[in-house]
Each structure stands twice: as structure tokens, then as C-alpha cells.
Computed example of a mutant assay.
Amino acid sequence: MSQRNSTWLWTAHSPEGNLIGFATALLLPTSEAAYLEYLAVSPSARGTGTGAALLSSIGTDLQEERSAHGVVLEVEDPLRTAGRDPLLARRMAFYARWGALPVPSLNDYFMPDLANPGGLVPMTLLWRGIRDDSMLTPDGVARVLTDLYHGYYAHAASKDHLEDMLERITPAAP
């Protein structure tokens, strides 16, 4: 049995009351970001606005939550993923319409491949400010990566994974 300790859960239901989508997020301890862990919509409800409604609820609810300053999420990089599945580009566009944009100060980000320990999955780190449109600072990126590593990836990552990802952050201009 698997157990998750997410901070937030959102659900979407059909007019008949059936569950057709959900999203979970976790408050990252040192970066004060909400990590959007998962968003799923039933195949029969895709294209109906269910995912957008979930994102709208997330944005509204987190504006009232003072502990989170923004939402961070990871999406497979459509340009660096083998096979270049067009679904990946659609996913990026979906989150961009909500205002979640790639973090410009992080280059060539990878998360550990949880299915194949030692492997890497090319990802894009996205950020959406909750109360304004400000982008995550390089220092904020380092805190997010550290939180993600210790909360999710340490068991599957190489011992130098975090240090390697931190070195990929472009420092702020003076």
C-alpha cells in the first residue's frame, strides 16, 4: 500500500458526481513553494475544461494560503525527451496558459528516474507566482531543488545529483 502526505487535494466531479480529476500539492519546507505533485483528468473528461478548472481552484486556494509564495512543478522536457511526444508540448502549453512558465535560471534540469535507479529524466521546472507574476529567483530555485531532492529523490538519485543540479543554476545578475 502506498501512502502520500500531500498538503492539499483538489477534486473535480462530473454533474453525476463521478470523480473525473484531481490534483495534489505539497508545501516544500524551506522554499515556501507549493509543489504540484500530480494533476490527472479522466480520459473521458479531457478537453472539457476540467484540468483548467482544477488549476483555477489551485490558484484561488493558494492565494489565501500565506505559507506558499508560488507553485512549482516539473514537466518532461518536450525538446530533450526521446521520441518527442507531441503530448509533452501540449502539457507545457496547458500550464503556460495558467501562467506557469519555465524557470529561466535553471539549465538542463533532470530528475532521477524513479523507475530505473541511476537513470535521469529530462525535465523543465515551471513556476507560477501566487500573488504576482514574479519569477523564482536563483536562490529560490536552489531551495526548491534541495526540497525536492530531500523530499522525493534522495533514495533514487546518485550521491552527487543535487550538487550537479545546483551547479546548473545561472546566478542572478549583479
Rank of each mutant, 00 (worst) to 15 (best):
M1F: 13
Q3R: 15
Q3F: 13
R4Q: 04
N5R: 10
S6T: 05
W8I: 08
W8G: 14
W10A: 00
W10K: 09
H13T: 12
S14L: 13
S14A: 10
E16C: 10
N18G: 07
N18T: 06
N18F: 10
I20N: 01
A23Q: 06
L27H: 10
T30Q: 15
T30H: 15
Y35I: 04
Y38P: 01
Y38E: 15
V41F: 08
V41G: 00
P43C: 06
S44M: 05
T48A: 15
T50H: 14
T50S: 14
A52F: 05
A53Q: 11
A53H: 11
S56H: 08
G59H: 09
D61P: 05
L62A: 10
Q63L: 15
Q63Y: 00
E64F: 05
E64H: 11
E65V: 06
S67R: 15
S67G: 12
A68N: 01
H69W: 11
G70S: 00
V71I: 15
L73V: 08
L73N: 14
E74K: 08
E76L: 03
D77A: 13
G83E: 07
D85N: 06
P86H: 07
L87F: 14
R91N: 04
R91C: 05
M92P: 12
A93T: 12
F94M: 10
A96P: 00
W98E: 02
P102L: 04
P104V: 08
N107F: 10
N107T: 12
Y109S: 04
F110Q: 11
F110K: 09
N116S: 08
V121C: 05
P122F: 08
M123T: 06
M123P: 09
W127C: 03
G129M: 09
G129W: 12
D132R: 07
D133G: 10
S134I: 06
S134K: 09
L136A: 03
L136N: 02
L136W: 00
T137Q: 07
V141R: 04
A142E: 05
A142K: 05
R143K: 13
V144D: 07
D147E: 01
D147A: 03
H150V: 08
Y152C: 11
Y153S: 09
K159D: 14
D160S: 04
L162W: 05
E163A: 15
D164W: 14
M165L: 07
M165Q: 04
M165D: 06
L166Y: 15
L166E: 11
L166S: 13
L166P: 12
E167S: 11
R168Y: 07
I169D: 12
I169R: 08
A173L: 13
A173D: 09
